[in-house]
Design a protein around this nucleic acid. Structure first.
Length: 962
RNA sequence: GCGGAGGUCGCCAAGCCUGGUUAAAGGCGCGAGGCUCAGGACCUCGUCCCGCAGGGGUUCGUGGGUUCAAAUCCCACCCUCCGCACCA
């Protein structure tokens, strides 16, 4: 007797060891087999590998194992990511004694105290996690060729030679340009302030403001706005009388703006020459000339104007800007203020809003309307924000300009805006500047502003040729799920030039700028090619000094003369040729898989860089993306404690149960949800499958080859096809669910239906089942495979043949299932009585004949049905015939699709025969005597009883329960 | 704002592309029975409402539409989640 206790860790370890000993996943080129190269974006070594990583990784592992079984030579390598500032950031925080960081390391990551001390060294930290994570991944049991492992940064000289080559290629091929780049800038730290370096203002990025110049004598009062098209509605200009303003030559032109604005302009590459400073009140009452319309309007005081936003000068469009409207109303009614600034009250009160846009919702004077609706009292009412946004949205999307806008009249607002910007640019009446739409404060407490960094090295992602090439590569690629393709197109088009150099963190130096690093996303784009080389660096055959530009040019691009390359690099000719062959054999990547978050950056970079460096035949073939793992319905969040490391999961549930819990959690772009309850239940499922298989093998069976054996064989054929198709489409959950539950249910049903199961059929079914289970629960499948007495490794065993199933037995079985369901329904309607006898009376022969004809008729017409019936109903009473026709007319429309097929089969074989075959099963099922009769042979007495019931129909016999 | 995904019978979650055995898979929970010394283990059945005969009624975010027929196709609306650049 086999042991029935299933030891997860013992079994899993055993097979992992076996795979390692037999070098099952160590892949070498083999011209006799097609290759399949799969990769996973290397995880960042700033912490333990978690279940989110495991989810994606498992999906890839399933495909790798499946493809092997389909005869592909599969290469699945792995590496670790060290580049960037995150690792150094953690070390920094520990050095500063940041308790939150230390707490997370201890509690979530399970790092011992004494190790945390050592984490002050970022390199130690990276090494530590690399060691730990490699061990965990090996315990998880992935089909990885570990000989090719590496990590990034200059701490790995071999890898750095490759990145160096990559960037030299990009530079030579013209994909790197010099240019400017705007950042959120902290003037105190003198460095860009990323989202995570901010005290407040997360998610705030530079936006374009338009500058409109109002002539004031020999200078310009320069106002900032998001809505330059509204210049046609200007009635006045606002300045804050208490704020400081300055007069300065900006690129040689005399401007008046708030004092703070000068620094911002200077940081946006304007030349600034300040001539004078003064208070805003000095400007009040002056007249300025409007753009386009050339009207003279007054400068008026407004407290809502913030000198640190925009230019500290706002032009007033009271009809369309609620702020302006309110400020004007306030001023009209404030005698004291008017007097203070020596303004003519009559003149101010005579200012009327100028309508220049109309919308269906708010009309042509929206400010007044919305201010009234929201009950806004004065210009310091916070509700003005909302009012502004409501008007802006409506007018921008649905507004039309009125006929007082010169040649921009009667246009959609969006169009008018474009044209106005264009025109102002042309005639010098306007300019642009970048500004933060809301305040950003650096960790050091300093208010940030936009700075344009000049003389940056940039990846020229905005290049139309590069985009076109990337889009072409995308077009040639398979993307799973297909909805994700839209995302790629969007991001390829959206990308602008990307500054790729950094001064902090770990990484590989820019080849021509040794004091700067290549940032983390940019050094990880074509590294999959390095997997071919890394194996030889790891075993010492190649040294970093061999890996020159000429070396990679030859091996990866087939450029150069091998003899010369050999001389220059010190690599033997034989090895060079071998490497060239290996590279050519394995490359390109056939499938890369990641979380959907990487579409926006890494995967798009991956496409860009491949098309920039490699010829078309080496471009990526397929990309698959999936959702983001949630834990018990919550997004993963370490500091909130919502986090499960892969290590913890394996310790609790083992590899196989963890695998299927992840795989069954989601499909496509949906976010999978990890539930610990499900993981526990999946352990039970695995144990249950184990017991189920073992119990099948321990029994004596007779040899049968009847309907049920046919049914089982064909049902499994159907499953094989379904699972294979699902895997080919990367529908891994579908495949896993079919393999786990589908075949399990088939076997159960077979055993329930047969009193004498056939050993041979059963054994074949189990073998196929294990084969299908292997990609999902490899350890369990392998273990049972060996218990079956197989001396081969299941990993190497070919995938079952995909063949069309014979539907006939499946359809016949469907008939029986329907019959059983009907019977249960009747029993239920009777109040769940226990039956003592079940009489099944099948339809009379003439009905069957008539029905066969009916099924061939496509259009259901009452007259046609009657005609067919009459043809076969010789000797049947008019009453009976009428009743039957009525019944048929009622049910016929519902006989469609599969059921039609079922009926055809049933009528061919004969209900009687099917029922008799199932006789003993039915008695067992209903625990009562079962009689099978036909309408043609029942006694008149029975006819009377049955007469009260709906008449028998082909496929739906009368059921009499006693 | 832009782009993407999604709202299904107590919960989780299939189905939707290719409209029709779809009252709607599977799992959990709950109920009944079996096995058993016992079991929170395992096996079987049931689980929208009504019905002592296989029937009827009402369901798939909301409101319309197309169709003989819609969870499935079309339109509008409401709600949720995710990404949006120096950050891995």
């Amino acid at each position: 007797m086999e042991k029935l206790q299933y030891s997860f860790s013992e079994v899993e370890k055993k097979w992992q060891r076996k795979y390692e000993e037999e070098r099952v996943f160590e892949a070498e080129p083999d011209p006799s087999r097609p290759k399949f190269f799969v990769t996973f974006p290397f995880p960042y070594m700033s912490g333990p590998v978690h279940l989110g990583t495991a989810y994606t990784l498992t999906r890839l592992d399933v495909i790798a194992r499946y493809k092997r079984k389909r005869g592909f030579n599969v290469l699945f390598p792995f590496a670790f990511h060290w580049t960037g500032t995150t690792i150094a950031g953690i070390s920094d925080r520990i050095r500063r004694g940041d308790q939150k960081t230390i707490e997370i390391l201890e509690k979530m990551d399970g790092v011992p105290r004494e190790e945390i001390e050592r984490f002050k060294d970022p390199v130690y930290l990276a090494r530590y996690y690399t060691e730990k994570n490699r061990a965990v991944l090996k315990d998880y049991g992935l089909a990885i060729d570990w000989r090719r492992e590496f990590h990034t940064t200059s701490l790995n000289p071999g890898f750095s030679t490759f990145v160096r080559w990559q960037y030299l290629k990009l530079l030579k091929n013209g994909y790197i340009i010099r240019g400017v780049h705007p950042v959120v800038w902290c003037p105190r730290d003198k460095s860009p302030t990323g989202d995570h370096d901010r005290l407040s203002g997360e998610g705030v990025f530079p936006e374009k403001f338009y500058l409109v110049k109002f002539r004031l004598n020999d200078s310009y009062l320069v106002a900032a706005t998001f809505r330059p098209e509204t210049v046609f509605g200007v009635t006045n200009v606002w300045v804050n009388p208490e704020a400081n303003y300055a007069e300065a030559y900006v690129d040689g032109e005399k401007w008046i703006v708030s004092l703070e604005t000068l620094q911002k302009l200077a940081d946006q590459l304007k030349s600034i020459n300040k001539t004078r400073e003064f208070k805003g009140r000095e400007l009040i009452g002056k007249k300025v000339i409007t753009v386009f319309t050339g009207v003279s309007v007054p400068v008026l005081p407004a407290s809502f104007v913030d000198p640190s936003i925009g230019t500290g000068v706002v032009y007033s469009v009271p009809a369309h800007a609620p702020y302006d409207y309110m400020a004007l109303e306030d001023l009209k009614h404030d005698e004291a203020l008017l007097r203070e600034y020596g303004l003519d009250p009559e003149e101010v009160r005579s200012i009327e809003p100028i309508s220049m846009i109309t919308t269906e919702k708010y009309g042509s004077n929206p400010s007044e309307k919305i201010v009234r609706e929201l009950g806004i009292r004065n210009q310091s009412d916070p509700k003005l924000e909302e009012a502004t946004s409501l008007v802006y949205k409506e007018e921008f999307h649905k507004g039309m300009t009125l006929n007082n806008c010169g040649r921009f009249s009667n246009l959609p607002v969006q169009r008018a805006k474009e044209l106005v910007i264009e025109e102002m640019k042309r005639n010098g009446a306007g300019d642009e500047m970048l500004e933060l739409p809301s305040p950003v404060v650096c960790r050091c407490g300093t208010r940030c502003h936009v700075k344009i960094l000049s003389d940056q090295y940039l990846l020229a992602y905005s290049s139309p040729e590069w985009k076109a090439k990337a889009l072409k590569a995308l077009e040639m690629m398979k993307i799973y799920p297909k909805e994700a393709r839209e995302n790629f197109i969007y991001f390829i088009n959206w990308y602008v030039d990307w500054a790729f150099t950094r001064t902090s963190g770990l990484g590989t130096p820019v080849p021509w700028l040794p004091d700067q690093m290549i940032e983390t996303l940019s050094d990880s784009t074509v590294y999959m090619a390095y997997y071919i080389i890394s194996k030889y660096v790891n075993n010492g055959v190649l040294k970093p000094e061999n890996l020159t530009e000429e070396f990679y040019d030859y091996v990866m691009l087939d450029k150069g003369v091998p003899e010369e390359v050999g001389k220059k690099t010190g690599v033997s000719l034989e090895l060079l040729r071998k490497l060239r062959y290996e590279f050519d054999y394995w490359y390109p990547v056939d499938l890369r898989i990641s979380g959907k978050d990487l579409i926006a950056n890494h995967l798009t970079f991956y496409i860009f860089h491949h098309v920039a460096i490699f010829p078309e035949e080496k471009w990526p073939r397929q990309i698959a993306v999936n959702g983001f793992l949630r834990i018990e319905g919550q997004p993963m969040h370490k500091s909130k404690g919502i986090f499960i490391s892969l290590k913890d999961a394996i310790e609790k549930y083992g590899s196989d149960a963890t695998r299927i819990t992840l795989l069954l959690a989601a499909e496509g772009l949906e976010d999978p949800n990890w539930e610990s309850e499900k993981a526990s239940r999946n352990m039970e499922l695995i144990e249950s499958i184990y017991r189920q298989v073992i119990s099948l093998l321990g029994k004596e069976y007779v040899s049968e080859n009847g309907h049920m054996e046919e049914w089982l064989r064909n049902s499994i054929k159907k499953r094989v096809k379904k699972i294979t198709e699902a895997l080919e489409n990367m529908e891994i959950r579908e495949a896993a669910s079919e393999a786990l539950y589908g075949l399990r249910n088939d076997l159960r049903w077979y055993l329930r239906r047969t009193s004498k199961p056939d050993y041979k059929t059963l054994r074949e079914a189990v073998e196929t089942w294990l084969n299908l289970l292997y990609p999902f629960t490899p350890h369990l499948a392998e273990e049972l495979w060996s218990i079956l007495g197989k001396d081969t490794i299941l990993a190497n065993h070919p995938w079952p043949q995909v063949v069309e199933a014979d539907e006939k037995p499946l359809l016949l079985e469907k008939y029986l299932e329907n019959l059983i369901e009907d019977t249960y329904q009747i029993i239920k309607a009777m109040g769940n009585v226990s039956a003592t006898r079940l009489k099944i009376i099948t339809a009379a022969k003439w009905k069957n004949e008539a029905f066969k004809k009916l099924l061939e008729v496509t259009e259901i017409e009452p007259s046609r049905i009657r005609e067919i019936m009459l043809l076969h109903a010789a000797g049947v009473s008019r009453e009976e015939l009428g009743r039957f026709i009525g019944q048929v007319l009622k049910t016929l429309p519902s006989i469609t699709g599969e059921y039609k097929m079922v009926l055809k089969q049933v009528l061919d074989i004969g209900e009687r025969k099917i029922l008799e075959e199932a006789h003993s099963f039915l008695e067992k099922e209903f625990k009562c005597r079962v009689e099978i009769l036909s309408e043609d042979e029942i006694s008149t007495e029975l006819v009377k009883v049955a007469g009260k019931k709906p008449p028998a129909q082909p496929g739906r016999p009368i059921l009499l329960i006693e």
